[in-house]
Design a protein around this nucleic acid. Sequence first.
DNA 1: ATCCAAGTACGACTGCGATCGTACTACGAC
DNA 2: GTCGTAGTACGATCGCAGTCGTACTTGGAT
Lengths: 104, 104
Amino acid sequence: MTAIAELPHPTREDIRIEAVLHALADPMRLHLVRVLATLPEGVPCGSIELPISKSTRTHHLRTLREAGIIRIRPAGTARITTLRRDDLDALYPGLLDGVLAARQ
Amino acid sequence: MTAIAELPHPTREDIRIEAVLHALADPMRLHLVRVLATLPEGVPCGSIELPISKSTRTHHLRTLREAGIIRIRPAGTARITTLRRDDLDALYPGLLDGVLAARQ
DNA sequence: ATCCAAGTACGACTGCGATCGTACTACGAC
DNA sequence: GTCGTAGTACGATCGCAGTCGTACTTGGAT
C-alpha cells in the first residue's frame, strides 16, 4: 500500500564522484553518514538529532539521496534511511572506510 | 638560497577530513589531484593546463595546500607541487584510492 | 640592467547552497 | 471524522567560494 511517494534514487551507474564528495563535504551531512554507518539498518530520517530545522534536514537528506549515498524508502508515515554502503564500496573501494576512519 | 617564500602547510595531525572533502569536491581541484596522482613526482604548478585564469589556479592550489592534500615547495622562480599521498593514506586509508578509482 | 616567465595578492562580481519559516500532504490513532 | 506526527515544498535571506582582472614580486635569461 504505502501511498507515500517513492523518491527517486540514482542507479549505481549514475552515481558521480563529484556529487558524492560534495555531499560528504558538509559537516551536517558527514555527521549523518557517520551515525548511519554505526547503526545496524534502517532508521527513520528524523531519529538522528541535529541542531537544524526540519526543512534543512530534508534538504541535506535529499542531497545525500541524490548523490547516491543513502537510500530512503517509505514506511507508513515515516521514511527509513539506509547507507548505500554496497554501492559506494563497489564504485569507490575504500572511500567510505577512509572517511569513517577520520578522527572526528 | 631560494628566496621565494615557503608557504605554510598543515602538519599531518592538523589535517581535517572536512577540509579534505571540501577541497576534493571541486571539479577543477579533483582534476588537479587526478593528474598529480599519475605523475611520477613533482611538477611545476602551472604545467597542468586548466581552462581557468592564473589567479583562479592559485586559489585552487592554495585550497588543496591548506587542506593538506598537496605540498608546494619553492624551486627557483617556479614551485613544485606534489601529492601528500603518504599523509592521506595514513590518515584515511583507502580514501584517495577510492576517489581515484572513480571512472571520470 | 632589462625583460620575461611564474606565481601571489587583492578587490570585485556572482551564483550556489545552507539556513529558516510557513504552508501543505499523507498516514495512523483515537 | 479529527488530531498529531513525519516529512516535503516553496520562497526568502545571506554568506561563502569560484571566477576574473590587475598589480606586484621574484628569479633566470639575455
